[in-house]
């Protein structure tokens, strides 16, 4: 049986500077150019769905999936409101959103679609969709990042996305919106003096980008906990984007990786990366964590005879 038709994946940052102020620094401009490269590739592809997983859309009640056919608003970022407003009107694939929800539920996840006028689509999703699909040529779908979800739940969510893509017969581009290191400066800065917050963050970012460049997405997934401990601010339980991206794209290392840009965004690490499925591999490793197919909820340990 062949798998779902995922044309390629894009990993991109959530910050608004590439959209609102690309001229403010060389780095922001390079990120904008990289978004533009991705936009062209998407336009030239046969994609009929852009599926976005955004780390700046946190959820609590399971996994929320945007299902308003034409969400429209003028968004303003909490921190970078002075850069300007982000008016948007997107085209969502409602049928896919509902199929994704059903697939998630069938794998044991709590999931629901949301379709409310004025629902606050997050900065990361707005930036990605406005730059990658400015004319709404391709319908999109956005899924939240549950703040309590850990590895098993996130991997099952990715497999649910895969199920839905296959079931719907879509040709999908998978977009993950996330920083690399996400430690920002705590003061306002001159954009021309922007830089990665620390040497340690920069070194880890570059190591992650080596993996991306080699197409080693599943290896990055396996390194998620370490990445979280080293360079992610501890505001959620885990660094989940690589888990979700790898689970959605097939859990292997067989990609052609292209790091299109890596620049600082107010101290955090912003990279635009493309991963295209390929036949070669840098070598599959043996991994020691369960490959979860179905989510059964939190496991109790006190009633298992351990005490």
């Amino acid at each position: 049986m062949t798998g779902p038709d995922i044309l390629f994946g894009v990993y991109c940052p959530p910050h608004p500077q590439p959209l609102l102020s690309p001229e403010a620094s060389d780095g922001y401009g390079k990120l904008r150019d990289a978004f533009e490269t991705c936009r062209k590739r998407i336009e030239e592809s046969e994609a009929d769905l852009i599926l976005v997983y955004s780390t700046t859309w946190p959820s609590i009640i399971g996994h929320q999936i945007q299902a308003h056919p034409e969400p429209e608003w003028v968004h303003v970022d909490d921190d970078f409101h002075f850069l300007g407003s982000m008016p948007y009107k997107f085209r969502m694939d409602v049928e896919f959103a509902e199929a994704f929800r059903d697939a998630a539920e069938s794998r044991g996840l709590q999931s629901r679609t949301v379709a409310y006028d004025g629902f606050p689509i997050d900065t990361g999703s707005v930036v990605a969709l406005k730059l990658l699909n400015p004319e709404n040529r391709i319908p999109a779908c956005i899924v939240s990042s549950n703040m309590y979800a850990n590895r098993a739940e996130t991997i099952v969510l990715g497999k649910s996305a895969r199920d839905a893509i296959q079931e719907q017969g879509k040709k999908a581009v998978v977009v993950v919106v996330s920083s690399l290191s996400n430690r920002m400066f705590t003061e306002h800065i001159d954009p021309t003096e922007d830089g990665i917050h620390s040497a340690k963050d920069d070194e880890w970012n570059r190591k992650i980008l080596e993996f991306f460049d080699d197409g080693r997405l599943e290896d990055l997934s396996q390194l998620s906990r370490e990445i979280h401990g080293q360079i992610r601010v501890q505001k959620v339980v885990a660094y989940k984007p690589a888990w979700w991206m790898s689970a959605t794209m097939g859990q292997h290392n067989n990609y052609t990786g292209e790091v299109l840009a890596y620049e600082a965004l107010h101290g955090s690490g912003g990279a635009v990366v493309m991963l295209t499925p390929a036949s070669g591999s840098v070598g599959d490793k043996e991994f020691d964590e369960d490959d979860v197919e179905h989510y059964h909820g939190d496991r109790g340990v006190l009633d298992k005879g351990a005490l």
Partner: peptide, 26 residues
């Protein structure tokens, strides 16, 4: 209203719009 770059204050006299809870929009 979470900010990572300092503390911010509302600075216009009027705000009129709709607030939809991103977690509990229902």
């Amino acid at each position: 209203w979470q900010t990572y770059i300092g503390t911010h204050f509302l600075g216009l006299p009027e705000f009129k719009s709709k607030s939809v809870d991103p977690v509990f929009p229902n």
